[in-house]
Design a binder for these strands. Structure first.
Lengths: 71, 71
DNA sequence: CGCTGATGTCAAACATGTTTTACACGCGGT
DNA sequence: ACCGCGTGTAAAACATGTTTGACATCAGCG
């Protein structure tokens, strides 16, 4: 599965900066590394389902407010 | 990430049988194999974010109607 | 200028998810 | 009894996501 990239979009950069968080701080809060957050922000790959849930939860918004499926 | 299992719950078995689909038929509709569907139904592991989206879409329900984050 | 924090990136190792192939079981129908 | 179908399971190979450690750039500030 998960063929050519471009399917799962996110706006975690906006959500993150709106809260004055660095990539490293967000990473720490969701239990990941800053490299992972960076890669996800740039949509180099999609996060695991679990990490996607954690990120939405840290932001305090609904899942679909962060993640969108394209196609 | 994705430490000890038990975090992402789903009720795709109910949704699937309610629609009279076999694991193999569902697998085909979401572009996966029946083994993958089987493993996910039994929560042996969580699917990728993309596959999770596809499954919810095939069922025609909202994402949160299929997937739940625990903890 | 030199320092620090934030970000981008890369390669190797590692963890997790997925496919392929194969075999087993139970059940309903013929 | 035999079939066909749906399901559970397993191991190996493969694909994807994640971490670790490192290095580079840039902006802001002393």
């Amino acid at each position: 599965m998960s063929r050519r990239s471009g399917r799962v979009r996110n706006n975690i950069r906006d959500l993150r900066t709106a809260r004055g968080l660095s990539q490293g701080e967000l990473a720490e809060q969701v239990g990941a590394t800053r490299q992972t957050i960076n890669a996800i922000e740039q949509e180099k790959y999609a996060p695991s389902l679990e990490l996607a849930f954690r990120i939405a939860r840290v932001f305090g918004v609904k899942f679909e407010a962060v993640w969108e499926f394209e196609d």
